[in-house]
Every structure is written in C-alpha cells, then in structure tokens.
Design a protein around this nucleic acid. Structure first.
Lengths: 190, 190
DNA sequence: CAGAATATGTAGATCGGTCTAGAGAGGACT
DNA sequence: AGTCCTCTCTAGACCGATCTACATATTCTG
C-alpha cells in the first residue's frame, strides 16, 4: 500500500474514532465520517470492503491501543494500585474535558450499543477491555498482589474508571472523577 | 386521559425503554417501537407531540424511577456502604443476565450517546444519575458517614456499579461484576 | 357531543452499499 | 526516453431502504 492510501485510511479511522466516541456507532453516519476525513466514498469501500462495521472495528482497535499506551506509561513506573487508578482517571478525564465531553472512554459507547446485537463488534470491544484488564492485573502482580487478587483488583480499577467517566460525561462535569479519585485513594491507602 | 390511551402510552414507553437500553437512542427506530408496543404511528405523535426525543425522555424518566425503587428498597434496610454497592450490583446484574445482556444500566447507553450532542436528553440523564447519587449519599449519612465523605462514597459506589455493568455487558459475562463485588467488599471491610 | 385516541398514508432527508470511470504511480520492455 | 501494463486509489453518481415528522380522516369514549 502506498503512502497516499495509508494517509487516507488513517484519516478515515481517525474520523470514525472521533465520531463514534462522541455519538456512538448508530449515531455516526458514513457521510459524516467522509466529510470529517475529507475522503471520497470510493476510498472508504476500497480500504474497508466490509463497510461500516469494518471501519468502526478499525476505530475501536485504534482506540484500544490508545489506552494500552496510557496504561503502559503508568505501568513503566512500577505503580501501586492507587497510582494506577488515579493515573488512569486523570489521563482520561483530562482528555474528556479538553474535548468538551465529546470524549470519555473511547470504547464504552459502542460497546454498550452493540453488546447484544452485533457479535463481531461485541467480541472486539470485549477483547479490548480484557486486554486493558490484563495489563492492569500484570502491573498489580508486580506490585505484590497475589494472582487471583490482582485480577479482582484490576477489574475494580477498570470498573471505577469506566463508571466515573460515564457519570462525568452524563453530567458534563469533572466532579464525579474527583469524588471517585478522593475516595478510592483513601480506600486503597487503608 | 382515558384508560385506553394510558395503556397505549405505557406500552410505547415500555417498548422505547427496552429498545434504547439494548441498542441506544440512535440505534432505536420509531418503527421498531411501534411494532413492539403494537401501537399506531398517530398514537405516538398524539401522546408525544415532541416526537422521538420526548418519547425517549419519558423512557429515561421511567428507567430512573426503576433504579430509584431498587435503591429505596436497599435504603429501607439501613444498609452499610458495602450492603449498598453489593445490593445494587446484584440487582442490576441479575436483571442483565435474565435479559441476555440486552440490559445493564438502563440509562447509560443513551447518556453516553447524547452527552455532547443533545442538551435536553443530556440534562435529563445527568439529573437521573444525580438523583441516584443523592439517594445513596443520604443513606450513607444515616450509616454514619460525614456529609462530604458521603457524597464522595456515593459517587464511588455508583461509578463502581456503572463500570462493572459496562464491563459485564461488553464481555457478555457476569464475571466482572463478581470480581468487583469481591474486591470492593474487602476494601469496605478494611 | 366534543375531545381523546386511533389509523394510515405521504414527504423529504438520510442511510449504507454498489458501481463505473478515471487518475496516478511504478515497473518492465523496447 | 518513451510506451505500455498493472495495480492502487480516488471520485462521485446512483440505488433501494429506512428514518422522523406531518397530515388527514375516522373511531372511540366519557
């Protein structure tokens, strides 16, 4: 594939990412993606012959990688569980506020929309979450937690972050993130 | 309003609730609502002259009341924070599993879809969450928590429940709820 | 009887997918 | 160097289906 095609494809994925994160899978029309990406319809089907699902799949995969990178940065500092949850909360909340609440968890809206209705995208979203949880659990084991306990704690960290972002976006306010951050820090210090 | 109209209106709201919870606001078409409710199009616009947004608004309001009732039942037993979070997790997870993952938090999907794009529905969803958080905080104050601490802990309880449901629906598995339940119980016992 | 409620058709807009033509780039060959 | 060929990629028109809202006529109910 040539450089020109790579750029067009990347613009399409980026546009799809932005739109599905703000409005979900069903709320994103391909005409909007094309307009935002400044790409022609023929290119979309050339690069994504599977159509909308394949494009959104690529967007979710890229979104998963973005959070993988955030987690990897946190993990590189051999963090405690408290470091992990507060670091993730801050990173994703900063991003959300900077994007005027059009962003939150880059996967959640699509994941909820397709959970019971689209097997392929559901499996993809489920896999992205499982990967994040696994990375968190690995870091927690390095921090001294036992194997089963690390899994439970990783799920708890991830659930807290996801839930705080839902509340924050629903209320267009960073306050829930701050409340959760304060409280969980105290719980994890005890 | 007559009994007949009340029943039709209720069927429309119930159908909308079911569909938006499974597939979101944009993923739910009015023709589907009409089919599920067994109601004619004229009745929809008669009862909801504001159209789709008004219907979905009524669905979200009803969904909020459903969780209000769950919380009220839990609160009636003068619960600890642990009782609250585990009780909510169980009630909503049982419902999710019984509905084959078409249900989770009855408001979350719509809340995320409209967070940055539909001021009226965003305000409504935000208000529903605020109401739940307030009810939890009030119960935690009865349980002996200080005022500011109760707010933070209520937000944390609600975020945990919301996040656990996101993970569970994304993975079509109750396991995340169980993991979160075990871990938070230990944290709150400490 | 009057207002509530039902019933169904229509309209313009948008949807995702398909199709065909053509442009551009690079390599092989003369 | 020029030509031809092949592959990649762009470009935009078109299609049938679906979308939400509106309109009008009719039926139902208290």
């Amino acid at each position: 594939m040539a450089v020109k095609g790579d750029e067009t494809r990347a613009r399409l994925v980026g546009a799809a990412r932005t739109l599905v994160e703000a409005k979900g899978y069903h709320g994103t029309g391909l005409n909007e993606v094309l307009a935002l990406a400044d790409a022609p319809r023929g290119s979309l089907y050339h690069h994504f012959p599977g159509g909308k699902d394949q494009l959104v799949g690529a967007a979710i995969t890229a979104a998963g990688r973005e959070v993988d990178d955030v987690v990897a940065d946190l993990v590189a500092g051999t963090p405690t569980s408290k470091d992990l949850v507060l670091g993730l909360l801050d990173a994703l909340a900063d991003r959300m506020v900077a994007a005027d609440f059009t962003k939150g968890c880059p996967v959640a809206t699509v994941a909820l929309e397709v959970a019971a209705t689209n097997d392929d995208l559901q499996a993809l979203c489920g896999g992205v979450y499982a990967g994040w949880q696994r990375a968190l659990a690995d870091a927690l084991r390095v921090d001294g937690h036992g194997s089963a306990e690390a899994d439970d704690l990783a799920a708890t960290v991830l659930a807290l972050v996801e839930g705080a972002l839902v509340l924050a976006r629903a209320g267009r306010s960073r306050v829930p993130v701050e409340q959760v951050g304060r409280r969980i820090a105290r719980l994890l210090d005890a």
